[in-house]
Design a protein around this nucleic acid. Structure first.
Lengths: 109, 109
DNA sequence: TTAATATATTGCAATATTACAATTAATGGT
DNA sequence: ACCATTAATTGTAATATTGCAATATATTAA
């Protein structure tokens, strides 16, 4: 169906899934890595840096912005994006809470 | 198109995206959380625990198994699943390398 | 105001994902 | 062998995602 039954899961489970989905596409991973590298924001340079068309990049940026992982600032005719440090830290806390669960002797398998 | 252009991205970027995608659905998050909690494996209990139909759970388990995040052992008529501790740690290293990038003063935004 | 530049939005085609009914396969018990 | 139980597979319908051409919007420069 393609329709995730979010109502069956806890808020935390849905939040983890939503955040993880943001990293579930290499273009968004590449965008974020570039924003970390070129700490002084970037905009349409991303279109050149990554090989995808402008509307495609714009769409990925929108998703990341909706999640609060990046911020965008209009500067003349271009828009400057950068990591939202505060929200990035919050995101990491959520993800680490999930990733750092204790692996108690995997007996059975 | 729904067709991710993986060839445009590095192996690491694609790996991060593939791993993240595994956590991009609350059912798989719930499955993994349950496997961590009930460290002594589980099988079709997951079908009861989570509310989805058996084939749906089976499909999610298959994805997690293909990525190596869980292991499955046949035990009579049932199959026992558990976290693959070794691969989980490897996955964490990859994800943390990405998540723990330095946030250098977000100037601009 | 007009032109140029940069980005966002819209619309659409193609592929991917999710979910499940129906079925099949595998194992154990009788 | 037969039945019951459990899990995997297959097939299919519905929704989601990705990507881009075309267009719209916004800002600056002339």
């Amino acid at each position: 169906m393609g329709l995730t039954k979010t109502e069956m899961f806890s808020d935390l489970q849905n939040e983890i899934a939503t955040l993880a989905k943001a990293f579930g596409h290499p273009a968004r991973v590449a965008i974020l890595q570039h924003l970390f590298k070129i700490n002084s924001c970037v905009c349409g340079d991303l279109v050149n840096e990554i090989g995808l068309a402008q509307p495609t990049i714009s769409q990925h940026l929108k998703e990341l912005k909706n999640l609060g992982l990046i911020k965008g600032n209009v500067e003349g005719t271009s828009v400057c994006y950068c990591i939202d440090g505060e929200n990035w830290v919050k995101m990491k806390e959520v993800m680490n809470q999930f990733l750092d669960q204790d692996i108690s002797q995997d007996h059975c398998c």
